[in-house]
Structure formats: C-alpha cells, structure tokens
C-alpha cells in the first residue's frame, strides 16, 4: 500500500514539469508555432530559478527570473519564426543548443561549481503545502491516504500546474482570445481578414508558452530538486511534445497523457516494484522510451489519428 502511495506521489511530482511544458507547447502550437525548444526554455528557467534563489534566498525571485529567462528565449523564437518567417523547427533546435551551452557557461562563471548551482535550502525552495483536512481525512479508507499522502503535501507549483489545465481549457475554448488563437493556427488568413493581428496573436501565444516553460523549469530546480545541475531537463521537453501529440492538442487529454508518462517515469525509478508485482524483469530502458513508442504508435495512426493544427509550422505571409 505504501509502495503504491509513494509511486503515485512520484507520478504527480514527475508529471508536473511535463504538464506545464505540454500546456506551454499547446498554446504555441495551437497558434501555429511549432516549438521544439520547450526543452531549452525549461533548462534556462531551471538554471536562472536556482541561481537567483541561491543568491537571494527567495524562491519567488527565482521563479520570476526563470520565467524571465524563458521569455527571452520565447522572444528569440518569435522573432525568428514570426517576424523573420524563418523555419520554426530550426529555431527550436538552436534554442535547445543555446540553452544547454549558456546554462553551463553562466553556472561556471557565477558559481564555479562545474556547471551547477549551490544546493538550495530553506526559503530558496518551494515548501510542501499541507492541504486542509489532510490529517483529518487520513483515516478514511482508500480516499484518505490518497488525499493526505499523494494530493496533499506537494509544492505550490504542482497545484498551479493542475489549475492550469481547466484554465487553459477555458481560455482556449471559452474566450474570444482563445477562439482567435486557435483560428490563427488553423487559418491565419481568415483571422487577418477579420482585422485581427496574426503577428500579435502568435506573439501572445509564444509568450504564454514562455511563461509556462519558465514555471516548469523553476519547478524542476526549486521544487522537484534542490538546485540546478547541467542538462537537468533530461529530455522532458521532448516527452512533453510527445504528450502533446498523444493528447491531440487538448488540455484535459494533456493532463492524462502527462500523468501516464509521469507514471512511467516513476515506475522506471523503482525497478524493484515491477519485479515484485509482475514477477518478471522489465528493462528500465523500455520504460524510459515508452512515451516515445506510444507516441509513435499514435502518430502512425494505429490508435486514432493525431491531426496537428493545420497552419502549424508555416510562417504567415500577408501579401501573395
């Protein structure tokens, strides 16, 4: 029982950065801007959050710095793919390299610890929050332990990430801004004809993407772990992209996909549990790549078809 609870707890923790990055990608791609630079933005945000939290001792300043860094990369991506109508994929690749290089360079210049930040303590980290009635409900069968052990006792960013799911759904599907944002990803010419700025909307989407990636990165280095180490995103940006395809560019499905992928990551950390429960050895490498294999199966169209926004990846040229 306690094993299941720790597994679910780890699932929620590991799903959080995936979910935030996935929603970030959702906004960007719904507006027609492919973004394979999620990884790089998270990495820069993770570094700046940890660095500023270490220097000021205040994790909130760290979070802001992380979001700021991520937004700068978003601005570069927007400049390349919207203003100069460059190739969005190439820009994303460049941003990922820039992030893996510059974080180590800055970490070395600022802290001289071989590309890492000092370990964060006290107010430099996000603390676990105990939700109301967590202790009172702990005795209730089934629901009690799940509520008190898994759902309660996470850091604030976990709840922020979860709250972003309905919020994203509401913004994208219930507001005028969301309708326009989705339209600009399907048919930018129509939006332009209606007198709404395609460039403005796309920059807004890219900026939202930057903020969410910033929170995701900050969570990695100040919530999930206590400090930055180089390449700490470890492919999470790409798993988030996979989750985005798995979720077929929808917020609620994104939550389910990220929970599934987070569960696989949590499982991969505990090979002993698999052996005990399933009575055979599952290679952790297989669990590591399950998100990618599942996504390829989805992409291959064997289980429903994932259709991306129609104008995705294409720069909008006004005059023909």
């Amino acid at each position: 029982m306690t094993d299941i609870l720790t597994l679910l707890d780890a699932t929620l923790r590991l799903s959080t950065p995936l979910l935030l990055a996935c929603l970030a990608g959702l906004f960007s791609e719904r507006a027609g801007i492919f973004d394979i630079g999620l990884e790089g933005k998270m990495l820069v945000a993770a570094f700046l959050s940890a660095a500023f939290a270490a220097m000021t001792g205040n994790v909130w300043i760290g979070l802001l710095a992380g979001i700021g860094g991520s937004l700068i990369l978003s601005a570069i991506h927007g400049l390349a793919s919207i203003t100069f109508r460059g190739n969005q994929l190439i820009s994303g690749v460049a941003i990922n390299f820039l992030a893996s290089g510059i974080t180590v360079l800055m970490a070395q210049a600022w802290f001289q610890q071989g590309g890492r930040t000092p370990s964060l303590t006290g107010n430099g980290r996000f603390d676990a929050i105990t939700l109301p009635f967590a202790n009172a409900l702990a005795g209730v069968p089934v629901i009690g332990p799940i509520y008190s052990e898994v759902i309660s006792g996470q850091t604030i960013l976990v709840y922020v990430a979860l709250a972003f799911v309905p919020l994203s759904w509401w913004v994208l599907f219930q507001t005028r801004f969301g309708l326009r944002l989705r339209a600009v990803g399907e048919n930018p010419a129509a939006v332009d004809t209606a007198g709404v700025s395609v460039v403005g909307l796309r920059f807004a989407a890219v900026a939202i993407c930057g903020v969410l990636c910033g929170v995701a990165g900050a969570y990695l280095s100040t919530g999930l772990q206590a400090g930055f180490v180089k390449e700490m995103t470890a492919g999470r940006g790409y798993i988030a992209l996979a989750a985005l395809i798995f979720a077929k560019w929808r917020p609620w499905y994104a939550l389910y996909a990220c929970l599934l992928f987070g569960f696989l990551q949590a499982f991969a950390l505990r090979p002993d549990l698999i052996e005990r429960w399933l009575h055979f050895k599952v290679q952790t490498q297989l669990l590591d790549v399950m998100p990618y294999i599942l996504t390829i199966i989805i992409l291959a169209g064997f289980v429903g078809k994932a259709i991306p926004p129609r104008a995705g990846g294409e720069p909008y040229v006004k005059e023909r």
């Binding site: 100069f84 460059g86 190439i90 690749v93």
Partner: peptide, 10 residues
Amino acid sequence: ALVIMLTGAL
C-alpha cells in the same frame, strides 16, 4: 546554436 540560428532560422 548561434550558427544554426543565424544561418537557419534567422
């Protein structure tokens, strides 16, 4: 990264 950015996307 700068070379990819400048010769590719920008």
